[in-house]
Simulated assay, not measured.
Amino acid sequence: DSIQTMYNPELQTAAGSVGQVRECTAKLLQFAKSTGIAVLLIGHVTKDGTIAGPRLLEHMVDVVLQFEGDRSYSFRVLRALKNRFGSTSESGIFSMEAGGLQEVANPAGLFLEDRDGEAAGSVIGACMEGNRPIMAEFQALVAKTPYGMPRRTAVGFDYNRVNMLLAILEKRFGLDFGIYDAYVNVVGGMKVNEPAADLAVAAALVSSYRNRPLPKGILVFGEVGLTGEVRRVSAPERRIMDGVNLGFSKFIVPDSKLQLPSVKAQIVRVKTLEQAIAAMFG
């Protein structure tokens, strides 16, 4: 059961209160430290994905692990939000099969298995899940709005960043999104939080707006600033090498020094969003 439902009869407070959570956790910590036995506490989470109840629970324990996924998909991600004795950059990706959870050893191309052909508004971006590169498909749909106020919807991506990218495209490219609805989706139920996906989402929006698909074999990543510059991101070499192994032949990446072995791929370094869009669509 969860720690929020555990009860210590020595306290005259209800289960789940600050005092109960603190005392129950303290007794379990004392047991773990004195015996050397690892203790796992299960905690409820809120709709926002944060641990329910008092924040002191996170401060008392040594490690906080979050196991998340979408009920519509079979994939689950295990993340370390806190680790007092190790790195929090590691993550585990699992697939729910008939016999239980199975580890996905090479998740880089996990979300590209059902992708076939080119389509306007679809762009592949290289994201990092912990320290593992994952190639995710970003889809955008730009359609004329039947209402006075255009709609903005984002699934698996930050809604505020979508609005920011739309404003940048309007300012830098003169694209008028004021009469268009804009929808952004990350295929496979994946949730992407890192800014390196900005360039892929912006390219998907331009592709759908112009109704022009990207040529096959292009992989993009990079953070987009408010002035339209494309900023560096972490681990570009790992993203590129995993992309090469998956068959990508052209990479649109931020302008930075890359320590790469010789690869049979075209690597285009860009400094601005204008250069990136020109390199993708010609």
Rank of each mutant, 00 (worst) to 15 (best):
L65K: 05
V187T: 13
V220Y: 01
L40E: 00
F111C: 02
V270N: 09
D48W: 01
D158Q: 14
F138E: 00
F251H: 04
V21E: 02
A235H: 14
I240N: 05
L166C: 13
Y180S: 09
T145F: 05
R172E: 15
N163W: 00
T5C: 01
L175S: 10
A126T: 05
E137D: 06
I134N: 02
G225Y: 00
A15E: 12
L219K: 03
V39E: 03
S122W: 04
L40C: 08
V39P: 04
F67N: 09
N245K: 15
Q139A: 10
F221I: 03
A52V: 08
V142C: 14
G148K: 15
G130N: 04
G109T: 14
G117F: 06
A38D: 13
I218P: 01
N8G: 03
F67K: 11
P215T: 01
G92N: 07
Y159Q: 13
L112G: 02
L258P: 07
N163E: 11
M190P: 02
V270M: 05
A278T: 13
I277L: 15
L65R: 00
R76F: 05
E170N: 13
V233M: 06
E137Y: 09
G36E: 09
S234A: 15
A15L: 01
K82H: 03
F67E: 11
K171F: 09
A278G: 06
A278P: 01
K27T: 13
T5G: 04
Y147V: 09
K264S: 15
T272Q: 03
A15W: 02
P150Q: 07
N245A: 12
V220W: 00
L205P: 10
R210K: 15
R132V: 08
E229N: 05
G130Q: 07
A120C: 03
H44L: 11
N131H: 12
L273G: 08
V104Y: 04
I37Q: 15
G228M: 10
E274V: 14
S122G: 06
